[in-house]
Structures are given as C-alpha cells and as structure tokens.
C-alpha cells in the first residue's frame, strides 16, 4: 500500500506492505535510526515520534496509519546546526547519558511544550512518566524540560 505523508517537512511516498510498522519504515527503509526500539510494547517511549503534533509510539503504529499525516522524528527538529530549543536544553543540562532514550525523551518534551506551555514541575513529571530513562534518574531531563518551556 502506498502511504503519502510529510516526514520532517518533506513529502514522502512509501510503498510498503500493509503490515509494516512505522518504526521499521523509519529505521530500515528511510535509514532514520534516531527513532529507537527498546521495550517494543509502547511503554518506554524510545520510539516516540510526533504525528500531527501528538506523540505516538512508532513501534505500535502502522505506517499506513500516518497516511496524510505530518510526521516529525528527532532528525527533523534541528535546522542545520541550529538545535531546536528542546535539544539545546538537553545539551545545556547534560540531560543525556547513554542517549538511547534521548530521541524519544526529546520528542516527548517537544510534545509537552506544544500541549502544556505553562506546565509546572508536577505536570512535567506526570507527562514524562510516559517515557523511561534508565541512566539519568530524570533530574536533569526535568531541568531541561523546564528550560525548554521557559524559552519556547
């Protein structure tokens, strides 16, 4: 089945089997490996991408289900060498360690900023509880989210 969608600002047409998952289209077909596969049961959030501005798990989304949608992955945030404010906040706060959760965590914070621009610490914690990190203990990620919210 052909799926037409916008990926990181570019129009794409993908002719993939009906059962292909978005994570495989991104990683294997488009070679966009920023979207990570970890728990594979839509809990950890490492494969978080935005579909029409909303966070979804690419591991449990059919590629066909982004037909007509605007999809943004971690590769689509920076403008050349100019980082997205959320990415810059992660840099400023050393909010990544092994980095495997980082793309999904960055996308989750982007979604948070879009949805709740006035989020306080409780809201941030509640929101980011949908995305797991095993290295940082979340402290610096929460600080990064606070900075991003202030700047956006």
């Amino acid at each position: 089945m052909e799926t037409e969608f916008t990926l990181n600002g570019h129009a794409e047409v993908v002719d993939a089997p009906d059962h292909e998952l978005l994570i495989d289209t991104l990683r294997a077909r488009m070679r966009l490996t920023g979207t990570k596969r970890s728990c594979d049961v839509e809990i950890c959030g490492a494969c978080t991408v935005l579909r029409d501005g909303q966070a979804i798990s690419a591991c449990t989304t059919l590629t066909a289900d982004v037909d007509g949608a605007d999809v943004v992955t971690v590769e689509g945030l920076a403008d050349g060498d100019e980082l997205h404010p959320v990415q810059q906040a992660f840099v400023d706060h050393s909010a990544a360690q092994c980095g495997f959760c980082t793309p999904g965590m960055v996308m989750s914070v982007v979604a948070l900023c879009l949805e709740y621009p006035d989020a306080d610490e409780e809201r941030i914690k509640e929101y980011l509880s949908s995305t797991l990190c095993r290295c940082t203990g979340y402290v610096k990620i929460i600080e990064a989210a606070q900075q991003a919210l202030e700047q956006m």
């Binding site: 971690v74 990415q87 840099v91 980082t102």
Partner: peptide, 17 residues
C-alpha cells in the same frame, strides 16, 4: 558540554543496533 551530546540529542548517535 558533553562531547557526545549533540549526536545524542539529534538522533545522529549510532549504536550497534
């Protein structure tokens, strides 16, 4: 600034997988 962090926040960091 961490040497690896730009790779990691942009999704450019390559892991074995």
């Amino acid at each position: 600034q961490r040497k690896d962090i730009i790779d990691k926040v942009t999704g450019r960091a390559r892991y074995t997988s």
